[in-house]
Design a binder for these strands. Structure first.
Lengths: 326, 326
DNA sequence: TTGTAAGCGTTATCAA
DNA sequence: TTGATAACGCTTACAA
């Protein structure tokens, strides 16, 4: 069934049907109604390929599905993808998936996706300092939104992010209020935007409370074993922390194991609120992933359809989820 | 850049370029080489929309991204999706995502996807007895593969599944070999294909070992709290089990909590090998999700491109992953 | 307000 | 073996 079928059914020309769909104000209400009735009666849906050929727009946005990393923090993507798909559908877009083992091949994939499918835009996750992907896209003026800030140039393009510092600050403040005078932090090595941000939140909260953060934190790669080791190191210090905030649930989980076997009653708060945290009763900072995904689509469709195509930025607040270890 | 650009560059007609791409055997090797060189030199990629308009094929397959359920077992989808995207890319297909809050609206989405985007096929996850979705698709002769068996009619269509019974049987046999004379089972209420299958494996393994499964199992909805409750019930029986196999990691995790607080040394084996299991050191039955996804794509592309379009079935064996609780 | 004509990039048909 | 022509379904420009 084509636009011609509808035209015949509604006794108008093909063009009038197209106008009803794309510029209804041009068509007399009476005719418009007749055409719309025909569309409904026949269950007509415009063929995207034909439309795309004419307009050069595919109404497709691309997202990378990453190879699952350690599995704990990897589950974040799931919820994000679902939110993205849902919001995109509501805005008349569809989500296409792609994978790439590394940044170079991801950029190569952009070329493919763009020339073969004429993708309208990209949602890029997990950006870091001086990301070559965003540079490539920006250079070619291809619309994109990142989930994660461009740490170097905060206003370079549209992005959505979660305020990690606010999250760790809230977690730290919670522990301080609960009476802990020495709240430590287990985070990643300096240099990653996300990691530095989360550490900064902890630090700021302590300073705000008039406490000294020095000697209360450790830097380590992500992982359960690493978290356990870091916690052991902190506990072995002359004046050990009485509470812990961690940059990820993996680290927190490791810390929890160390603390449990040491029999110490040191509360731990993780980050990301993964299913693992929920399962073991670990308090954690929860990212509003559904919201973040929705805002990504909003910003992208703004770039694509909006009247003002200036980049915009959205910073969302995470929520502290308190639990009691089982 | 279009096929015409390439044609000019290689000094041939548009049609010859098309032939080089779609039916190379028709073109003299010398000409073919010249055209291929031009394609590479220009970085030409065929426009899918135009090709689709002509052929009626989009080289797009659709997969539903489900709203994350309890989060623990929900992570299964992540790995599956990644495998799917990767294998699809290798076969020249792309994966398009869609969501639907319920079965009716999922079927409505099929109509949309098919008429607007002319999707070539679907990968349907989580089928159950008398699934209306597969009936709808089969009726219209739309190619699809399910991940999960059609329990009513094993040969109705192409599917890939993981042998859940083999998994629980292996877990059970492992415990029996370790000397457990009373291995219990916590599973879901009878009626779901997957749940019944997993229970059957446990049962068969006990019978094979000459043991009596009666009175050693519980039926409960999925969840951590439910697993904990079920384990309490089993432990309270006159002759309690000395080891447990569970239909999911959620149930196993709950059982583990009960057993820990009871101070009983009863080993537990879960199902799905979720990140949670890895994190808490829970032994679990692991589904080969990457393989399963790859086989789904294989079966679907067989249906789409293959010479023989008969439905095929693939049953994969899961693997028992043994761990020691931390 | 409605209709006609052209063209988007590709492939299938058929003639050279 | 190669090339010209038409057609896929749609939208834009323009004419009626």
């Amino acid at each position: 069934m084509t636009i011609a079928t509808v035209a015949r059914h509604a006794q108008v020309s093909r063009q009038t049907v197209s106008n009803v769909i794309n510029a209804p104000q041009l068509v007399r209400p009476e005719t418009r109604q007749r055409v719309q009735d025909a569309i409904v009666a026949l269950g007509y849906r415009a063929n995207q390929a034909a439309r795309q050929m004419r307009t050069g727009r595919s109404r497709l946005i691309a997202v990378r599905i990453e190879p699952t990393r350690d599995g704990i923090n990897g589950t974040v993507l799931d919820r994000f993808l679902h939110g993205l798909t849902e919001t995109a559908e509501a805005s008349g877009y569809r989500v296409m998936l792609y994978t790439a083992p590394d940044v170079d091949r991801e950029i190569a994939a952009y070329g493919d996706l763009l020339s073969a499918y004429e993708l309208d835009g990209f949602v890029i996750t997990g950006t870091d300092h001086g990301d070559p992907r965003t540079a490539w896209l920006a250079e070619r003026e291809i619309p994109f939104v990142t989930f994660g800030r461009p740490w170097d140039h905060p206003h370079a393009h549209s992005w959505v992010d979660v305020d990690g510092a606010a999250g760790t600050a809230e977690a730290t403040a919670h522990l301080v209020t609960a009476g802990h005078h020495r709240t430590g932090f287990i985070g990643w090595p300096a240099g990653s935007g996300v990691g530095d941000d989360r550490r900064a939140g902890w630090r700021r909260a302590l300073l705000d409370a008039g406490m000294d953060p020095d000697g209360l934190d450790v830097q380590t790669e992500d992982g359960i074993a690493e978290g356990a080791r870091a916690a052991r190191e902190l506990l072995g210090r002359p004046v050990p922390p009485s509470a812990l905030v961690c940059a990820s649930d993996s680290l927190a989980l490791g810390a929890l194991q160390t603390l449990r076997s040491a029999g110490t009653a040191v509360p731990v708060i993780g980050f990301d609120d993964t299913p693992v945290a929920a399962a073991v009763g670990l308090s954690s900072v929860s990212q509003p992933l559904g919201d973040a995904a929705a805002r990504c689509v909003d910003l992208l469709t703004d770039l694509l359809d909006g009247p003002h195509r200036d980049p915009r930025q959205v910073l969302l607040r995470p929520a502290l989820v308190l639990r009691h270890p089982a």
